[in-house]
């Protein structure tokens, strides 16, 4: 039996298919800017890799920002629970998860494999992937490289963490002063880390701490966060996939909760269509 987890983030969509024993395949693709997200095609790709069809998948759990209207999902669960489950499966010792996504960041508390508390950033780009994207654009550096570059800094500049707009201005000011890009980026990462840290502190940071999401791929940000947290943090080998992994784990559990008939009934309801996002009306565009 196969179980699928589909994590439709604001910028990246991830699919993970697993069986009882192991993860069989993963696909990671941009969510895309078009208003009908082609998550079904990404799902298809994963199925093709395993030579499977949708009928082979016992249960599909959708999660992430775009989870609400997935016509082929059997259940939707928040990415908060899914990240928690994924990380808990990979690293049972983790009690605090910091998830840094494209549009938001979250703090998640785990206790014995249960979600006990969480916190999300509020209407503000500082401390999200978007913030780093803005700054990397401003500096003309590739987003993927900024973390590494920041580590070469010898004298990190002091960028205040209050607001993206201000940070932009401060960055420009530093540039005009001739501060090196390394030092500016180190300052930016520190500011971002401090913002995230002060948010996650609301739910009390306890050992062990893991970082997930796109932000976890940025080594500069991870180091800066580690500095704020005060002890080493765990970064999973593929931090983008923990949500989809958690979703697939839930999918396998759900399968066991219901009868075969119910399962088939659910599967028959699946419609292999594109995914609508909540902020889009079908008539638009």
């Amino acid at each position: 039996m196969f179980y699928a987890g589909l994590d439709i983030g604001s910028t990246i969509t991830k699919v993970l298919i697993k069986n009882e024993r192991k993860v069989c395949t993963t696909v990671i693709k941009p969510t895309g800017a078009e208003h009908r997200r082609l998550a079904n095609e990404i799902m298809d790709e994963a199925l093709r890799k395993l030579n499977l069809t949708t009928a082979n998948i016992s249960y599909i759990v959708a999660t992430g920002y775009g989870r609400i209207n997935v016509p082929f999902a059997d259940k939707q669960v928040t990415e908060i629970t899914c990240h928690m489950r994924g990380i808990n499966w990979l690293f049972p010792s983790v009690k605090t998860i910091i998830d840094i996504g494209g549009q938001d960041s979250k703090g998640i508390k785990v206790d014995n494999g249960k979600l006990v508390n969480f916190v999300m950033n509020d209407k503000c780009a500082a401390g999200t992937g978007r913030f780093l994207e803005v700054i990397s654009d401003l500096l003309g550096v590739k987003l993927d490289d900024i973390g590494e570059i920041s580590l070469q800094s010898t004298r990190p500049t002091n960028i205040s963490s209050i607001c993206t707009v201000f940070a932009e201005q401060e960055t420009l000011l530093q540039l005009s002063k001739g501060t090196s890009i390394e030092d500016i980026l180190a300052g930016i990462h520190r500011a971002s880390a401090s913002r995230i840290h002060s948010m996650v502190k609301k739910i009390k940071i306890e050992k062990d701490v893991a970082i997930t999401g796109g932000g976890a791929k940025n080594i500069g940000l991870c180091k800066a966060l580690e500095e704020r947290v005060g002890f080493p943090v765990i970064v999973p080998p593929e931090p983008l996939i923990t949500g989809a992994l958690g979703a697939a784990l839930i999918a396998s559990e759900e399968t066991k909760k219901i009868s075969k008939e119910e399962l088939i009934e659910k599967q028959l309801k699946r419609r292999w269509e594109a995914v609508t996002f909540f902020d889009e009306k079908p008539t638009k565009g």
Binding site: Y65, I68, V77, T78, E79, I80, T81, L115, V116, N117, F118, M120, F278, D279
Partner: peptide
Amino acid sequence: LEPLRTRFQAFAET
């Protein structure tokens, strides 16, 4: 309102 759904749903999951 809609962006708040994740918070409520996650809270229910808690």
